[in-house]
Amino acid sequence: MAVSDRLRRLRSITDTEGHTSDVDDHSREEHLTDAVARGVQGGFVATLMMTAFRLPLLRSLPPSANFWSQYVADGEPDDHPIAGLALHLLYGVGSGAIFGGLFSLYTAGRSIEPEGRGLVWGSIYGMVLSAFGVQVMLHALLDIRLEADELALFHAGHLVYGLSLGAWVGSRTEGVENPDREYEYDTGN
């Protein structure tokens, strides 16, 4: 379904009797603002988790420190640990905000379980960010080529980011209940 269709679905809410009423612009803006706020929060938490995962394994600062030392200040990346980590956090929070908005558009009017969808879409989003990071940030902007083991850990770190972000946003997004869905419970018998 196209983004424009999702926006139209977001503009209307179906009440319990099946009647549809238009949602005013303020409600749509508020819904999107809430979704972006969830993404910002999730991006913050997910970046902390990714950084905690990668720092002890790679024993180096994120590539944002290289970016800082090459484009903003002189010196080596290790000369700017605070700026490198702050920029990395800024990237993560900004990416989280984008994910929050996109996930809100995806879930608008759908009968879904957002927690599970959050994990799936978060992991995909994390891998897309990782591919972008390698091709654009590392190769094109910084002229950095990672060794195979470093590249694997780079991707694993972004998978941790995506899973954490998706879990955060999905667990805080209200799903639409599907009355036609049958639930099966494992009773242990």
Rank of each mutant, 00 (worst) to 15 (best):
residue 1 M to R: 11
residue 2 A to T: 14
residue 3 V to D: 11
residue 4 S to R: 12
residue 5 D to N: 13
residue 6 R to S: 13
residue 6 R to A: 13
residue 7 L to N: 10
residue 8 R to L: 08
residue 8 R to A: 07
residue 9 R to N: 15
residue 9 R to T: 12
residue 10 L to G: 13
residue 12 S to P: 05
residue 15 D to N: 09
residue 17 E to S: 10
residue 19 H to Y: 10
residue 20 T to Q: 11
residue 21 S to H: 09
residue 21 S to V: 09
residue 22 D to S: 13
residue 23 V to F: 06
residue 24 D to C: 00
residue 24 D to M: 02
residue 27 S to Q: 07
residue 29 E to H: 07
residue 29 E to T: 07
residue 29 E to P: 00
residue 30 E to S: 11
residue 33 T to S: 09
residue 35 A to I: 01
residue 35 A to F: 01
residue 36 V to W: 04
residue 36 V to E: 01
residue 37 A to K: 06
residue 37 A to W: 05
residue 38 R to S: 01
residue 39 G to T: 02
residue 41 Q to K: 09
residue 43 G to R: 01
residue 44 F to Y: 02
residue 44 F to L: 06
residue 44 F to G: 04
residue 46 A to L: 07
residue 46 A to R: 00
residue 48 L to I: 12
residue 49 M to S: 09
residue 50 M to K: 10
residue 50 M to R: 11
residue 52 A to Q: 02
residue 53 F to H: 06
residue 54 R to D: 02
residue 55 L to E: 03
residue 56 P to F: 02
residue 56 P to Q: 00
residue 57 L to W: 05
residue 57 L to T: 01
residue 65 A to P: 12
residue 65 A to K: 09
residue 65 A to W: 09
residue 66 N to S: 15
residue 67 F to W: 06
residue 68 W to G: 01
residue 68 W to D: 10
residue 70 Q to N: 09
residue 72 V to Q: 11
residue 74 D to T: 12
residue 74 D to W: 05
residue 75 G to F: 04
residue 75 G to M: 05
residue 76 E to R: 06
residue 77 P to F: 05
residue 79 D to L: 08
residue 79 D to R: 03
residue 82 I to C: 03
residue 82 I to H: 12
residue 84 G to I: 02
residue 84 G to E: 04
residue 86 A to N: 03
residue 87 L to A: 15
residue 91 Y to S: 07
residue 92 G to M: 10
residue 92 G to R: 02
residue 92 G to Y: 11
residue 93 V to P: 07
residue 94 G to R: 05
residue 94 G to A: 06
residue 95 S to M: 15
residue 95 S to Q: 14
residue 96 G to H: 06
residue 100 G to A: 06
residue 101 G to T: 04
residue 104 S to R: 13
residue 104 S to C: 10
residue 107 T to K: 03
residue 109 G to T: 13
residue 112 I to Q: 01
residue 112 I to W: 01
residue 115 E to Q: 12
residue 116 G to R: 11
residue 118 G to T: 03
residue 120 V to E: 02
residue 120 V to I: 13
residue 121 W to E: 06
residue 121 W to F: 13
residue 124 I to D: 08
residue 124 I to H: 02
residue 125 Y to G: 07
residue 126 G to K: 04
residue 127 M to Y: 14
residue 127 M to V: 12
residue 130 S to R: 11
residue 133 G to L: 12
residue 133 G to T: 11
residue 134 V to K: 14
residue 134 V to D: 14
residue 135 Q to L: 15
residue 137 M to P: 00
residue 137 M to G: 01
residue 138 L to D: 05
residue 139 H to F: 08
residue 142 L to Y: 04
residue 144 I to S: 00
residue 145 R to T: 08
residue 146 L to H: 14
residue 147 E to W: 00
residue 150 E to H: 15
residue 152 A to R: 13
residue 152 A to Q: 11
residue 153 L to C: 04
residue 154 F to K: 10
residue 156 A to N: 08
residue 159 L to C: 08
residue 159 L to Q: 03
residue 162 G to V: 09
residue 163 L to D: 05
residue 165 L to D: 03
residue 166 G to D: 01
residue 168 W to F: 08
residue 169 V to K: 08
residue 170 G to W: 05
residue 174 E to Y: 04
residue 175 G to Y: 02
residue 179 P to Y: 04
residue 179 P to E: 06
residue 181 R to T: 08
residue 182 E to F: 14
residue 182 E to Q: 11
residue 183 Y to Q: 14
residue 184 E to V: 14
residue 184 E to I: 13
residue 186 D to A: 08
residue 186 D to F: 15
residue 188 G to C: 14
residue 188 G to R: 13
residue 189 N to G: 15
residue 189 N to E: 15
